[in-house]
Simulated scan of single mutants.
Amino acid sequence: MDELPPAFWQGVEEFNQGQYYACHDTLEALWMEATDPPKSLYQGFLQVAVACYHLGNKNWQGAVILLGEGIGRLQSYEPEFAGLDIETFVDVSANLLECLQKHGPEQVAIFSQLVLPAHQQSESASQDVSLMNRLTLLPKITTVE
């Protein structure tokens, strides 16, 4: 399978712009109609999108569970699929999951700032967010160069 449908690329754009709920809706519509491959690819990306959405709502448990499930589905597509850099996406997502697990639910407020637009971030968390952004904690869906 060399080409993915235009709706998938719309979902990629939504994901990379932090529109995680919209991305979920876009990819879920594809996932429901698809067969493998790429059905589990769509599901893996949409689960990571929902994990990021949960993170923005300070739902640590939802973020951790869905990150783990999404990563598990995407690993079978590594290192790349249809020109997508799955390996990097999985690595960054796994790093975020590890950080969330290490810091626990009591620190979720700091991590939730990662997924909020800059104008919605609390002033007290802005320095923490700047540091975390430099650590590249949020995955982006990219193509292989």
Rank of each mutant, 00 (worst) to 15 (best):
Y42L: 05
M132N: 09
G70N: 08
L30E: 04
F111D: 05
E13G: 05
Q17K: 13
D128T: 00
Q121R: 15
F89V: 03
M32P: 00
P117W: 05
K39V: 01
G11V: 06
M1E: 08
E33F: 00
C99E: 14
A82P: 07
V50A: 10
L41T: 10
H119S: 13
I71L: 10
F111G: 06
C99T: 08
H119A: 12
S112P: 01
L114C: 05
P6E: 13
L46R: 09
G104D: 09
N59H: 06
G18F: 04
I110V: 15
A125T: 08
L96Q: 09
V64L: 03
Q10H: 04
E145F: 00
E14T: 05
T88G: 03
E3H: 09
G62N: 10
L67V: 06
E123F: 08
I110E: 11
A94P: 10
T143G: 09
E13Y: 00
N95Y: 11
M132Q: 09
V129Y: 06
S130R: 13
M1S: 13
G70P: 06
T26R: 14
D2E: 15
N95M: 11
R134Y: 07
Q127E: 11
A49T: 05
K102T: 12
L138W: 07
E14H: 13
D2K: 14
F15T: 02
Q101K: 15
I141W: 04
L138K: 10
N133A: 03
T35F: 01
P117M: 05
V64Q: 06
V90E: 10
L30V: 04
V50L: 11
N57Q: 15
P117R: 07
E33T: 10
M132W: 14
A49W: 05
L66K: 11
P139Y: 05
A7L: 15
P38H: 00
G83L: 06
A22W: 01
D2H: 09
G56N: 02
Q107C: 09
V115Q: 02
Q107P: 00
D2Q: 13
M132C: 07
E14S: 11
Q47R: 14
V90D: 12
L30D: 04
C99F: 06
L138R: 07
S112C: 03
W31G: 03
E3W: 03
C52A: 10
P139C: 03
D85N: 15
Q121H: 06
Q10G: 04
F89R: 02
I110Y: 12
A34Q: 03
L46T: 07
S40L: 11
L116F: 02
Y53D: 05
H54V: 03
E87H: 13
M32F: 02
V115Y: 03
W60M: 02
P37L: 02
Q10C: 03
G56C: 07
A22V: 00
A63D: 04
G83Q: 10
L46S: 05
R73H: 13
C23R: 02
T142K: 13
D91T: 14
S126H: 10
S130E: 12
G68Q: 13
Q61N: 11
D91L: 12
E78V: 06
K140W: 07
K140D: 08
E98Q: 14
N95D: 12
Q113A: 15
R134K: 12
V12W: 00
Q61P: 00
R134M: 07
Y21K: 08
I71T: 12
T88K: 14
F111S: 07
L135Y: 10
E78T: 12
L46H: 11
T143K: 14
